[in-house]
Design a protein around this nucleic acid. Structure first.
Lengths: 218, 218
DNA sequence: CTCTTTCACTTAACAGTGTTATTTTATTGT
DNA sequence: ACAATAAAATAACACTGTTAAGTGAAAGAG
């Protein structure tokens, strides 16, 4: 039989109560986060309001500040969820293909698919608040997502394999990112850029770029 | 001697007065427009406020509404000035080169130069309020600027000359626009995308694209 | 079981924003 | 000098994010 601590029952009760309260707090925090996410997705960046979130979740606006530092912090958490989803999709798409050039193609299309399927999130993450892209979370050092890193490594692999003309892999990666971002951004902006047109432009552009990146003796 | 009209002096005075008043009105309108433009350029899209414009120009906020329908109308006029400046720069750059492929290169660099030199305007015109791009002004039918048209025609000319692989000129144009917009947008977003890096990416990307667009037997 | 402290939450308020209806002021026409 | 007209200002509404102060209930200590 183990020795009984000094105040076994009381402390246990105390801790249980604390735990329960903490749990409830996290639950409300999650509820706010969820309400904010859906409200953001329907109303968009400009129409997103803290007060509406409070209304939706059934509390006064000031209560939000007990769980989030300010509007930006809440917005950042929404973006952060988008970043992990984005990262997963890019990663699985990249992992499915071994040939570096084909992998670049797959990454590009996964990128554009995310933008097409989550336009409001893409807008937040890469257009209105691209500063979030580099913002490090509490404690973490490196930013949440590193698409550019994956692309750069893949380009480098292609160069090593002789599939891509030698050069600065980082610059190639920048260019590929710019191409994808450009198509995604034009598609999302309310220009007469239909899904078909964007898709055609993407295939053409990525194709031309990857073709242009081939070694001279191709 | 010509016959005197019924009320020569009075009507002339009347007209003069009216003209003067109308002139003053246009002057104030212009003053508002100018103040708005500079204020917009310093404070950016999000920090741009009608009330600050009124303050700057020395009137109450409501007076602005006697000259502009609403904030959007004022913003549109600012954007519109940007569009004409942009159009001029693109046009002169395009006119300086005859070879279609070289002209595409020149247009691309003129595009990026404008974005680099007028980031706040570019942001308004092509990022935050790209809907202005298609909005037709009072009376005019077609939208203010048609970069895509120039690019498309140049691509078509390149195809006709056998310098560009046959295909859909519109899709090629879309792709080239996307590339430029992507680089400009990434550059403007506060990412660690220095001017040199953007320039290198631009040269590489446009180069690869134009190379990839060459006929097969190149 | 009572008292005190702690904590979640609300109320009230401030400083802004765009926008509208109403009222004052100045200018013009008769 | 007086009436019509146009320009500008006041006051107000409905919002926004955010902060300081107050309230009420639960938790901890004696």
């Amino acid at each position: 039989m183990p020795r009984t601590p000094r105040e076994p029952r009381e402390t246990r009760l105390r801790q249980g109560s604390r735990q329960r309260r903490e749990h409830e707090k996290q639950e409300l925090r999650q509820a706010i986060r969820d309400a904010a996410a859906t409200l953001f997705e329907t109303h968009g960046y400009e129409g997103f309001s803290l007060r509406q979130v409070a209304e939706e979740v059934g509390y006064t606006p000031t209560t939000i500040y007990l769980y989030f530092a300010d509007k930006d912090a809440l917005l950042f958490e929404i973006a952060d969820e988008g970043f992990v989803r984005f990262g997963e999709q890019i990663h699985t798409a990249a992992a499915a293909v071994s040939n570096p050039v084909e992998r670049l193609w797959a990454i590009g299309h996964a990128y554009l698919a995310f933008a097409e399927q989550n336009p409001v999130y893409y807008q937040l993450m890469f257009m209105q608040r691209s500063d979030f892209l580099l913002a490090k979370r509490e404690g973490e050092r490196r930013p949440r997502i590193d698409v550019l890193g994956i692309v750069r490594e893949t380009v480098q692999a292609g160069m090593d394999d002789g599939l891509i003309r030698p050069g600065d892999a980082a610059t190639f990666a920048d260019g590929l990112w710019a191409v994808c971002h450009g198509i995604a951004a034009l598609r999302i902006s309310k220009l007469p850029f239909t899904a078909e047109r964007a898709s055609a432009a993407a295939d053409m552009t990525l194709g031309a770029m990857l073709a242009g990146m081939r070694p001279a003796t191709g």
